[in-house]
């Protein structure tokens, strides 16, 4: 093997090494330094979390660039984003730090923004919003756990009692223990009642157990139904009568709705009042008959005379009786 051949091999080997280093660089760095086309945007956050140089910038899930630099700027952290020159980002688009997995691979997620809004110029600052990270969620979960523990503690105090006060179960237990005799008595009575009911004793028992009663009830119900039908018929008839009265037919209708009849009735009433007034005052034959007792006395005297005459007639015989009557009357 000549020296020239060895030298050639070494040269080839070295070139291979250089090529491999270049391949590794281009593959692992995405050829960042080789094609640094694109423009920069600045995104300011309170906390960049796990975001680091080289992480993806994605718009609606599509990779459009990478994080070129992370730095502190005053009271906030800034990420410089290298964006593909073909991608235009609306000036109202929002950037946030997304998490690609639980192991802490983060990326910048940019939303699409509104259509028709002017695009961000190179070097401009993009609007950002904070996203909840796992630590915050864990802290909140911890607080929630504390509250839950408190609530459960209060509940357990209610159940078990606190500071010597008996809990709800102890109270229930005491209540049952104190009233066990009453509860027993109630239960026994209840048992007796249900037994009676089962045996068909008493009204309720019969109602439940006796089929006859059921039939009678059914019959009563049908009677009631018939009665209701009759009542309905009566009501219909009454309605017809009322309608006839309303239309002024018949005596009652005439009486109520005929004005002439009303006037006549009033006149009759007035006449009657006049007659009764006269009677009360003793005017006329009937008035005198009612109010003047002299006529009564005269009649009484006449009857007495007649009585005596009849007595005398009894003594003198029938012929004289006629003469006596005639003498007494004339």
């Amino acid at each position: 093997m000549t020296t020239t051949q060895n030298t050639a091999r070494v040269g080839l080997f070295f070139l291979l090494g250089v090529a491999l280093v270049w391949v590794a660089y281009a593959t692992l760095s995405d050829g960042k330094a080789l094609k640094s086309r694109g423009y920069n945007l600045v995104a300011g956050f309170d906390n960049l979390k796990e975001l680091k140089q080289g992480d993806d910038v994605r718009m609606a899930g599509v990779k459009i660039g990478s994080v070129q630099e992370t730095r502190l700027a005053g009271r906030r952290a800034e990420a410089v984003l290298r964006i593909d020159p073909t991608v235009k980002i609306s000036s109202d688009a929002l950037a946030m730090i997304g998490s690609a997995g639980l192991l802490g691979t983060n990326y910048i997620a940019i939303d699409l923004g509104s259509a028709g809004v002017p695009a961000l110029a190179p070097g401009a600052e993009i609007r950002t919003t904070a996203s909840a990270d796992l630590n915050t969620i864990m802290t909140q979960l911890g607080e929630l756990g504390g509250k839950l523990e408190g609530a459960l503690g209060s509940m357990s105090e209610v159940l078990k009692g606190k500071d010597g006060q008996p809990g709800i179960f102890q109270r229930l237990d005491a209540l049952l223990a104190n009233n066990s005799a009453k509860v027993d008595a109630t239960m026994t009575s209840l048992q007796q009642v249900t037994d009676k009911l089962n045996r068909g004793e008493g009204t309720l028992g019969k109602l439940i157990n006796d089929p006859k009663l059921h039939d009678e009830l059914l019959a009563a119900a049908s009677d009631l139904k018939a009665a209701t039908a009759d009542a309905r018929t009566i009501m219909t008839s009454a309605q017809g009568i009322v309608e006839r009265v309303k239309s002024g037919q018949g005596s009652l209708g005439t009486l109520i709705y005929d004005e002439q009849a009303g006037k006549d009735l009033k006149a009759i009433a007035a006449n009657l009042k006049d007659v009764s007034d006269k009677l009360a005052k003793g005017e006329g034959t009937l008035g005198k008959l009612i109010n003047d007792d002299s006529l009564f006395r005269e009649a009484q005297g006449t009857l007495r005379k007649a009585d005596r005459a009849l007595d005398g007639m009894g003594d003198s015989g029938p012929i004289t009786a006629v003469g006596v009557v005639a003498g007494a009357l004339f």
Partner: peptide, 11 residues
């Protein structure tokens, strides 16, 4: 030679 050997070893 070391970088060449190392990058080959890596790959």
């Amino acid at each position: 030679m070391m970088p060449v050997l190392t990058i080959i070893a890596n790959l």
